[in-house]
Design a protein around this nucleic acid. Structure first.
Length: 615
DNA sequence: CAGGTTAGCACC
DNA sequence: AAACGGTGCTAACCTG
């Protein structure tokens, strides 16, 4: 038995490291003495839980002053006693429980459904206390961040520097060190032992700081995190054959286009500097500048040149696109798939300042939606088809509900064309849905939710500033309730430094950006609508079929013979009425591939790939 | 030279 | 009076 002593927040802590099966007796005594609540953490070989080489190495339990580190990688009695402890203890404190519970689920065989009800996730608490990341004026939500701010800055510094230090000494990198550092390494033992102590302490440090209005959210956010973790665990089936072919064809496209660009004297199309040099040599005047003063060569400029038929600009645009698509999406899918060809996204159910979710791994929220090429990579399970159920104009409906604006509410109640209403208010009643002005109305409606102004609308639509201003003025006149609502929120933000959303979530607002308060409450409440829907879907037994939540949309894989019924049912469950406004859904049954939702009608006749066809 | 930052592009 | 909200990922660039 190996004992380490350290100091956390001026108090001595003891870390007991189990080396032999005989040491387990002390561990069992410790568990028996703390059956109500313990800090919990795992050490693994890395972050890719579902990769074939992945291993769980250690499991650690702790109170405020004592931790036990058990090397379950030795198997046998070590793993068995940890299993008994996980089943026997009534409550666990973890930081980012989704990760550890999936590890335990997959590698110790305890389903996370068994553990989630016992969990207090200190990352969730930290977000409810202050949702801002570090780069955003907050303290951040990582274990190091919250330890620094709420527990002990010295301990945080050790957590921060140790991985790099070990990586140097063991001649590897930070992300690979956890697979190779030997269990005998004392600093590894210390690092492992401190974490459950911190998790335990964080529950007590953070709980009293959760705003009173947000206390009810604690339980809900844990349930949402669980449903998201279930989707992660399920994964999304990858069409490996198709994805490999796509990777190759993108690679060829890139080589071809790069060759053309090189013929114009540009060695590296990804270097903005080089592209700018060649463009200027070709007589192009680059007037735009980036914030740091460099020449701005962006999509706007290159797109314009491409439109004018410039062969160099075209080659650059296409080469960059092919490379980006291959590296960011396609190859990543192939590299991250598990032994069953499934990709496991990481869904952060409580991410943005507004609590909006984010998805990494399969960055599902940022996949190209202009065509089906990339999304074609993902499939429903065998015998199933995909269904996409999204909310109709979710954020605008939420805006109508929260602001109570009469015209906007009426528009949704009577299923009128809101974008046309805005357009007509600006340009007259003769405007029809086929006029380009309707698009101005539509863009203005969305931009208003984002807090944008006339200059921006003008740029986005490529119209004169006065015209843009006219549309926004019309918006203000037409929906006075929205204007009032925005003003009230901005005043609240100015007075308190934060706003409180209808569910009681506290969102800080920066003093120089009070106008953003409206967007925050709309974005946050829309997120809550989708998350509440996930909880209801879980309660109704649909979670095994869910694949991903994407802002205002839920993607599901459902048995083919019940697809129509299932999609409709999911749509019904997701729908809700908010202050009298129906937040309606639009269920759609696709084919086997995700791409089937993105095939344009006019291209349908040329499609021979059965997975791209619906039904 | 690892690791952080910037610029650009993808989405809602 | 005006104000573009939120995210992830990559290569290139910068820095200690």
């Amino acid at each position: 038995m190996f004992v380490l002593r350290d100091i956390v927040a001026d108090e001595p802590v003891v870390i007991n490291v189990v080396d032999t099966e005989d040491d387990l007796e002390g561990f069992r005594d410790f568990i028996r003495g703390n059956l109500d609540m313990l800090g919990l953490d795992t050490e693994t070989t890395g972050l890719d839980i579902y990769s074939p080489e992945y291993r769980l190495r250690l499991v650690q339990f702790g109170t405020a002053h004592e931790a036990w580190v058990v090397p379950v990688e030795l198997g046998g009695r070590f793993a068995e006693d940890v299993r008994l402890a996980l089943k026997g203890v009534g409550g666990f404190a973890l930081h980012n429980a989704s990760f550890d519970l999936q590890v335990i689920d997959k590698h110790l065989g305890i389903p996370m459904e068994e553990l989630w009800p016992k969990v207090t996730d200190t990352q969730i608490l930290a977000h409810l206390v202050d949702p801002r990341g570090r780069e955003d004026g907050g303290f951040g939500h990582g274990l190091e961040d919250v330890t620094r701010h709420y527990i002990d800055a010295r301990v945080a510094d050790e957590i921060k520097t140790l991985p790099a230090q070990l990586a140097r000494e063991y001649k590897t990198t930070k992300d690979k060190i956890w697979a190779i550092v030997p269990f005998s390494e004392i600093r590894y033992r210390l690092y492992a032992g401190i974490d459950p102590i911190l998790a335990f302490r964080l529950v007590h440090a953070l709980s009293p700081k959760v705003p009173k209005t947000s206390v009810d959210l604690i339980e809900q956010e844990h349930e949402i995190a669980e449903v998201c973790a279930i989707m992660e665990r399920t994964g999304f089936l990858l069409d490996v054959e198709y994805t490999k072919q796509l990777s190759e064809s993108l690679h060829m496209e890139e080589e071809l286009r790069t060759g053309i660009a090189q013929a114009y004297g540009c060695e590296n199309v990804n270097s903005t500097e080089q592209v700018a040099d060649v463009l200027e040599a070709r007589g192009v005047k680059i007037t735009g500048r980036t914030p740091s003063g460099k020449r701005k060569v962006d999509k706007h400029l290159l797109g314009q040149l491409k439109k004018e038929g410039d062969p160099f600009a075209t080659a650059v645009v296409e080469a960059k696109k092919a490379r980006k698509w291959r590296e960011t999406w396609v190859d990543k899918f192939l590299n991250s798939r598990d032994a069953n060809d499934r990709c496991h996204a990481h869904i952060r159910s409580l991410r943005a300042r507004t609590a909006r979710m984010s998805i990494t791994g399969i960055p599902a929220q940022t996949l190209p939606s202009g065509d089906w090429l990339i999304r074609r990579c993902f499939l429903s399970d065998e015998g199933q088809v995909l269904a996409s159920i999204d909310y109709k104009a979710q954020e605008l409906r939420v805006l109508a509900a929260l602001s109570g604006d009469r015209t906007m509410r009426e528009a949704f109640e009577k299923e009128l064309d809101l974008h046309l209403i805005t357009a007509r208010a600006a340009f007259g009643d003769h405007i029809t849905e086929n006029d380009p002005e309707r698009k101005y109305g539509k863009t203005a409606n969305f931009l208003k939710v984002y807090g944008g102004g006339a200059a921006n609308l003008a740029e986005q639509l490529d119209i004169p500033f006065p015209t843009a201003k006219r549309v926004l003025d019309a918006f203000s006149r037409t929906y006075p309730g929205v204007e009032d609502f925005g003003t009230r929120l901005a005043n609240q933000a100015r007075r308190d430094g934060y706003i409180t959303t209808p569910v009681g979530r506290r969102i800080p607002v920066d003093p120089e950006r009070f106008y953003a308060a409206l967007n925050y409450v709309v974005q946050s409440t829309s997120r809550d609508v989708t998350c509440r829907a996930l909880l209801r879907l879980h309660d109704e037994g649909f979670s095994p079929y869910l694949r991903l939540p994407i802002h205002d949309e839920v993607l599901a894989s459902i048995p083919k013979e019940h697809a129509e019924w299932g999609a409709k049912r999911i749509g019904e469950i997701m729908r809700e009425t908010m202050r009298g406004v129906l937040i309606d859904t639009d269920p759609e049954v696709g084919g086997r591939s995700w791409g089937s939702f993105y095939v344009k009608k006019e291209d349908l006749v040329n499609i021979t790939d059965p997975y791209l066809l619906k039904g």
